[in-house]
Simulated assay, not measured.
Amino acid sequence: MYDPRDQLMVSDPDGHVEKLLALLYEGGRTVSQLADELSLPVQDVLGAVESFDAERLLEDGERLGRLDATEAERYFSNLAFFESFGTLARSREDLQRRLSESHVLVLGTGGLNSNTIPHLSGLGVGRMTLVDRDTVDVRNFARQYLYRWEDLGARKVERAAAWVRSFDPAIEVQAIDTGIESAEQLAELIDRTRPDVVASGIDQPKEIDLWVNAACVRHGVPFVRGGITVTKGIVWSVAPGVSACRGCVPADPSPNRATGPGSSAPNGSQPSTG
């Protein structure tokens, strides 16, 4: 297996599996051709191929080689990673193409998402909508590496969008300089931008996680939430219709603590995970 922690043990008393694996590694054969070379029934070979595919060990050669030379070089490391998740129905290149066709709505370009945005850009996400209301401040430089000293006083969301365009001009990016003041405003934003995923990194107001949850569940949009609570990082996600949602948790699970990841709790107490 690709992950050295995993092993796939296969019984092969007559050596047919080893021969099949060697032919699959060479590639370029149909199931019928494999069966002919192994002198085995087509259904037996098909069953073996389906088993290997279920373990994500096979890709369809016709679904590879469709990226041009520049794209293949640009996404070289991504493709090496996606190989572990490729199947006959969806190759590593299909996975990369899906990213290039995706739109992420990034709520907040501060402590969390100033680090998330470069990773999304490196992955090759094709479109981003960035939302923030703050300016670059001296205190940001402890952990917001997206910004430069010359950006002091500039609008964060504009500088973040400029960074993305400079990093990869192929990425379409929109900057929205605003705060989130109500559930209705957030719902309208998601309805208007129609993202595939929401990356939420806003801490205030304290109801923000419930607002994001309600809007995303209503529109069927998955979202990811992350933050830091003093000494530990927290990340959780909601896939509407698949996972539980934030609405399942009491609005204020611990009355003496802040509810959002990354929130500043009074008197040194740790914020709850939400």
Rank of each mutant, 00 (worst) to 15 (best):
S114I: 09
R192M: 03
V197T: 10
G126Y: 03
R165N: 08
Q144D: 09
Q185C: 05
I208A: 04
Q174M: 13
P205S: 03
V173R: 04
R155A: 14
A175G: 08
A160H: 07
L130S: 10
G126F: 07
Y145C: 08
C216H: 06
G153V: 07
D209T: 15
S121M: 10
S200D: 14
P195L: 09
P118H: 08
I202H: 03
R133K: 11
R218F: 04
P169R: 15
Q185F: 03
F167E: 12
L107P: 01
S182K: 06
G124C: 10
L107Y: 06
D151A: 00
N213T: 11
L107I: 06
C216I: 09
A162Q: 14
N115L: 12
I176L: 15
V198R: 06
S121N: 01
G111A: 12
P118A: 03
I202S: 04
S182G: 12
Q174I: 13
A161C: 12
T109Y: 04
V212A: 06
G111H: 10
D132C: 01
D137E: 15
F141N: 05
V212Q: 07
V164M: 11
A142I: 14
R139G: 11
W149I: 13
G111L: 05
P169S: 15
K156D: 05
A199N: 05
V125K: 00
T178W: 00
L210D: 12
E158D: 15
D203H: 09
D134Y: 00
R165M: 09
G201C: 03
E188W: 02
V157Q: 11
A183E: 14
A199Y: 02
S166I: 00
Q204I: 01
A187C: 04
L189N: 02
N140T: 06
L146F: 05
K206A: 14
W149Y: 14
A199R: 02
P118Y: 06
V125D: 01
A142P: 00
L112Q: 02
P118N: 07
N140S: 03
T178N: 01
G108Y: 04
A175H: 08
L123K: 07
I176E: 07
W149T: 15
V173M: 11
Y145E: 11
F167L: 10
S121Y: 01
I117A: 00
V217Q: 11
F141G: 07
I202A: 08
N140D: 14
R139D: 13
R143F: 06
N140Q: 10
W211T: 04
I208F: 04
E158K: 10
G126E: 03
G111D: 10
R192C: 01
N115E: 08
V164P: 01
D196G: 08
Q185N: 01
E158H: 13
D191V: 02
L210R: 14
V138P: 00
R218I: 00
R159I: 14
L189D: 06
T135Y: 02
I176P: 00
V217I: 10
L107W: 06
R133N: 10
